[in-house]
Design a protein around this nucleic acid. Structure first.
Lengths: 238, 238
DNA sequence: ACACTTATGTGACCCGCATCACAAAGCTTA
DNA sequence: TAAGCTTTGTGATGCGGGTCACATAAGTGT
C-alpha cells in the first residue's frame, strides 16, 4: 500500500514538491544548487538509527521521504519520544548550530530517504546566505514550539485520559496525511504512544478501550477514528 | 544587599559587560549601533508582566538586568515554569521569528531592566546581518535544548526526589551566580520549584525536608547548600 | 505593635496509574 | 502449520504523591 506522494521526491530536493515545513523550499534556486553540490542522499531501512544521543554532531539531515522518531532515553532504558519527524523537515539542526552533542536519538519508523550535509558545509552555507539563516531560525523556532507544547502536556496534565485525548486531537490536526478529518492513520504502537504522553503501555491500552466504549475514539488496526471530537476536546482542556 | 554587577549595565548594551549568552555581545560594534537606534530601554518592578500567553508578538526584549520567569498556564490555573531567564538573554525571540502568538508568559521575578526592539526593526536587522541571524539561531537552539531537558525530566522521571535532585544540581551548575559551588542563592518559592519540576508545593516541602534529614541538601532561607552532591547525582540518574 | 498577606510545615486520606504477570491475538519466517 | 516474534488485552496489587485542611512561621505595610 504505497502512499501517493512516495514518488518523485528522491531524485533531487531541487524538484522537491513538499511545501510545508521544508527547510529549503523557497530559497532562490541558485542557493539550492550550492547545497546540491555538498549533499549526500541515501536511503535507510525501517529501524535504522540516523544518530544517537550524546554523539558529536556531524551535520544536518533533510528527511525527503519517510518518518523518523526522535527520542531520549534514560539510564534504565525508559524513553520519551520528542516528536515524529515527517518528510520535509530537518534533523540535527540543533546540533549543527550549537555544536553540542545530540540530545536525542533519531530512528526511522519506515524506509526513509535522507539528504545529509556536513556541518562545516552547512555552516559555511548559512554564513553566505542570510536568508537561509533565518530559515534555520524558523525551523528551530518551530522545534522549540513543539517541545514547549510537550512540556505543557507533561507538566500540566493530571490524568492520562486528558493527555491521550490531547495527543489524538493533535495527531488529527498535524497528522501525517493532510486530509485528516475524523479518520486517519496512526502507525504507532501503544508503547510508543505511551512514550509520547509519558505513561505506560498498559494504561494506553486501557484508556484507549475506555475511549472506545464511550464512543469517543477507536483505533482499529492502525486506523484511528475520532467519533466524538467535542467530548475529546473537553477532556483535553480539562 | 546589592549584587556587584548591578551597576553599569543599564546605560547601553554597547557597554554591556555580560559575556555569556548575551545575544548581542560579539557582534561588530557598527551593527550594534544600528540596533541602538531602534531599541527602547525601560525598567520594570518585580511582578511585572512583560508579555502574556496568546498575545501577538510585538518584538524581542533583551534582559539587561534582573530575572524573568517564563511560564505556561492551563485553563484551570495550573502552571509550569519553562525556565528562569537571566540577564543577557533574549525574550520573545520565538514569537518574533515565527510570528506566532507567545506560548508563554514572562513575568519579572525582581526589578528588571529591559531593552525592547520592535519586531519589524528586528527582522530587518536580521536580514541585513547574517551573523546576527546565526546568533538568533544559536539562542533558539539553546532554548530548544533547555525545553528538551525539561521534557526529559518530566517524561522520564518516576519519582519526585529524582526530579528535585536533578533540579537542584542543575541550578547549581547553571545557577545565577557563576561562582556556584555548594552554596548558592535559590530565590524561588517551593510553589515555583514545584511548577518547574511538575509537582505540588507540599511535595516539594516534604522532599526538601527529606533531603535535609538525609544530609543531602538544605535550603536555609533562600540559600541552598548542597551537602552531598554525589548522593544527589545518584538520585538524579536513578 | 498591629493586622494581613504570603510562604512553609505536617498530618490524613485515597485514587490513579505503574508494575507485575499472564493470556490472547496478530505477523512474520521457515 | 508450527514456531517465533511483537503487539494488545486484562486482572490483581500496592505505593506515590495529589489534594484538603490546618498550623505555624516569616515578611509587609500602617
Amino acid at each position: 500500500m504505497k502512499t501517493p506522494q512516495s514518488s518523485g521526491l528522491t531524485e533531487s530536493c531541487l524538484e522537491c514538491k513538499l511545501r510545508s515545513a521544508n527547510f529549503f523550499c523557497g530559497l532562490p534556486p541558485a542557493n539550492l544548487k550550492a547545497l546540491e553540490a555538498v549533499k549526500y542522499t541515501s536511503g535507510y531501512p525501517e529501524g535504522a538509527v540516523l544518530f544517537m544521543e550524546d554523539q558529536a554532531p556531524r551535520g544536518i539531515m533533510v528527511l525527503c521521504k519517510g518518518r523518523v522518531k526522535l527520542s531520549m532515553t534514560s539510564a534504565e532504558g525508559r524513553a520519551v519520544i520528542l516528536r515524529i519527524v515527517k518528510a520535509g523537515e530537518v534533523l540535527g539542526l540543533h546540533g549543527a548550530i550549537s555544536g553540542e552533542p545530540y540530545q536525542s536519538t533519531a530512528e526511522t519508523l519506515e524506509p526513509c530517504q535522507v539528504s545529509f550535509i556536513r556541518r562545516e558545509d552547512f555552516l559555511a552555507f548559512l554564513r553566505q546566505n542570510g536568508e537561509a539563516s533565518i530559515r534555520a531560525a524558523q525551523q528551530l523556532s518551530s522545534d522549540y514550539h513543539i517541545a514547549c507544547e510537550q512540556v505543557r502536556s507533561l507538566g500540566l496534565a493530571h490524568s492520562v485520559p486528558e493527555k491521550l485525548a490531547r495527543f489524538l486531537l493533535d495527531w488529527a490536526t498535524n497528522g501525517q496525511e493532510p486530509k485528516s478529518g475524523t479518520r486517519m492513520k496512526l502507525t504507532l504502537t501503544h508503547e510508543e504512544i505511551g512514550q509520547m504522553i509519558g505513561t505506560s503501555r498498559e494504561t494506553v491500552t486501557r484508556t484507549l478501550s475506555e475511549f472506545k466504549s464511550k464512543q469517543l475514539a477507536a483505533l482499529r488496526g492502525s486506523t484511528l477514528i475520532i467519533q466524538n471530537k467535542e467530548a475529546l476536546e473537553n477532556l483535553a482542556n480539562a
